[in-house]
Every structure is written in structure tokens, then in C-alpha cells.
Design a protein around this nucleic acid. Structure first.
Lengths: 181, 181
DNA sequence: CGCATGAGATGATGGCCATCATAGCGAACG
DNA sequence: CGTTCGCTATGATGGCCATCATCTCATGCG
């Protein structure tokens, strides 16, 4: 059938968005192309009309997730404390599918193909830059400050550990100590 | 053939050790049972004589890796600074297969089956305890101090990010700023 | 009003996987 | 010195995967 003008772009976006959530939830190897397409309301056949291969979708999903975190956690916050409050929160720990892609999938990044690795490097760098921006608003810097790097490392590590320890009280403490500025 | 007394135990240990490295390198879903057995010098058939199923091996490999990090990085170090120097080092970043399992596979932990999750929780808790021990040697504590939690989070996050950024200079800086005590 | 178009569906291919049943063989034990 | 035991190999099973060739058919265009 002949579809309306921007139909294909809209469908592609929906695939990327759904994939972004599904991958953060189940891991990069945790969801098959048929499953991803079904989540977007399609069958697996049309996949290669939208993407060169699986990695192209994964890379795009990583970039989508990075933008989502930027918009949801950082642009919304008016101070670093506010951003840290959102990032280092129980809802974030409990909902990796809607959370930071670096914390959810970062450890898998270095093992991926070059295009996916590039997407991850971009996401990591973006996270550092967002922290830097909240740390010293307005001021533009050629490279992130030591403090921005340290805060970012603490944030990511605290979320990874809080998800891992399987001990709610300890998880809360991990988030709380990482919130100090 | 009838094998020498402790043959089976030795083979099992070799499988666990090899699996521990292979999994840290390629991810939890990145190595098949046939591949794991071949690394141990065997064929896939005997696997189920040693392990109930794949997850049992994964859980054991996680515990093995955690012990290895404890012995290699922490027991060897005589101060927290020394331990941080080893953990937050380029060799560690460049060799995940011989490094901390929390940094290499932690993000995959929450998605695993219950036995594997338990192994990861144990590994994470163990890492925190090792930090605590170096932080206040000798003193026994019922629960880790705030500072131990913060240092551990910073360590893990810094290694994850350093592996991700694909920028050697930035990676070095991430390690350096996390080394501050 | 009918036809060309192209997004999406159907279905096939070849490969790899976890798991298991069974067979073989060689050292240890009698 | 023969028998037995049990560790490991061989091979099968059923399932799922990424990728691709081909078909369908509704719709926008002429």
C-alpha cells in the first residue's frame, strides 16, 4: 500500500524508541529482532527496510536513550542537586528501561561493534557534559572539569551497585552518599 | 576411564576459571557452553556432569572472579591508596577479563536468574567490604561506612566510564580523579 | 477510476544454542 | 589381570536467531 508522506519516518522512530526501552530492560543481547518489531506493532520482515542491520538499530537506540536522559533528568533540573536527586533515586534504580543507558548497558558497550561503541562513547561523553553544565552553568569549557568527571563516575557507579546489591536499605544508602556535593 | 582421585574437582575448577575470564571478556551471553568447554580443553558433552545448568556455572564464575579481585587487588595492597592505584589503572581498564566482575558484568547482573543475581550481590557486597577494610583496617563493622560506599561507587563508575569513552586521555583523567581520597 | 508504488507480511535458510541420551574407554580396584 | 566404574566424547533434538527473497495489497497519483 502507498503510505502517507512521513509514515516511514514515524514507524522508524517508534521502532527505535521501543527498542531503546526493551534493550535497556533486557540487555543488548536480550531481545531479538522479531521481539523488537512486535513491540512496535510490526512483524520481523520489514526490519531491513528500516535498518542496515541489527547494530544500526542498537546504536540508534543508545543515542535515543542518551537524549531521553538528557531531557528527562538534566534539562528539567534547575541545579546539580536536583539532577542528582532524580538520577540517584529509587525510581531510577527500579526502572532501568526508562533510565540512563550508561548505567543500564554501559558495561556491555566495550564489547560491541564499532558503530555501537561510538554511540556509547557519545552517550558517556554527553552524560559528563550534562553534569559539567549543571556544575558550572553557562560557562563553556573545552574539556570537562575534574569535578564533573568525579561526580559522573560516582553517579554511574552508585546506580550500578544499588541495582546489584539486592538489599534495599544498602541501595538507598549507596544513592544517598553519592548525592553529596 | 577411571580417573585419579580428584580429577573431576580439578577439571571443574578449570572450567570455572576459564569461564570466569571468558565471560568477563565477552559478556554473560557472549560465550556458549561449547566454547567454554573447549577453552577448558573438553567438548561440550561433559558439561552437565559438572553443572546443573548454565546458570550454575555463571554464578560460580562470578564468585570466582570476585575472589580473584579480592586476592589480586586488595589483599596485596597495604593501603587504600595502593588498592585504588591498582583498581583505577590502565591495565585494569584494558583487561576486563582479568579484572573486577562488578565493573565488567555488573550491569548485566540484575537481569539474570536468581542464583546468578545472588552471586552478583555477594560480589558487590564483597567489594564494598574490601574497600571498608582498607579504609579502616582492623576495625570490624556491622555495616559499611558512608565513605566506603562512596569510594566503591566512584571506583566502579570510573572504570565503566573509562572503558566506554573511547578516548584514552579522558579515560586516564577519569581514573585519576576517582583516586582522590 | 485504475494502476503503479512501496511498506509491511510471509516464509525460508543456514547456523548456533542449551540440553540430554548414549556409547566408549582406560585407570583403579579386587 | 580382568572387571567395573565413571569421566568425557559423540551425536541428536528442538528451538530460536539474523538475514533475505518474495509476495500482498491499500492507497495516492495520474
Amino acid at each position: 500500500m502507498r503510505y502517507p508522506e512521513e509514515h516511514k519516518d514515524a514507524v522508524r522512530s517508534r521502532i527505535v524508541e521501543e527498542a531503546s526501552r526493551a534493550l535497556r530492560k533486557a540487555g543488548i543481547d536480550g531481545v531479538s529482532i522479531p521481539a523488537l518489531m512486535k513491540r512496535a506493532g510490526l512483524t520481523h520482515g520489514g526490519f531491513y527496510a528500516h535498518f542496515e542491520n541489527r547494530d544500526e538499530l542498537v546504536a540508534e537506540a543508545v543515542r535515543f536513550a542518551a537524549n531521553e536522559t538528557g531531557a528527562g533528568v538534566f534539562e528539567r533540573a534547575r541545579s546539580l542537586d536536583e539532577a542528582l536527586g532524580a538520577y540517584l533515586s529509587a525510581p531510577h534504580v527500579d526502572a532501568p528501561e526508562a533510565g540512563c543507558v550508561v548505567a543500564a548497558l554501559g558495561a556491555e558497550g566495550p564489547r560491541q561493534s564499532a558503530p555501537v561503541r561510538r554511540a556509547f562513547a557519545w552517550a558517556a561523553r554527553g552524560l559528563i557534559d550534562l553534569v559539567q553544565q549543571k556544575l558550572a552553568p553557562g560557562r563553556e569549557r573545552a574539556r570537562p572539569s575534574d569535578e564533573a568527571l568525579e561526580v559522573t563516575a560516582r553517579m554511574v557507579g552508585a546506580v550500578v551497585l544499588a541495582r546489584l546489591v539486592d538489599d534495599e536499605a544498602l541501595g538507598r544508602r549507596l544513592l544517598a552518599v553519592a548525592r553529596r556535593t
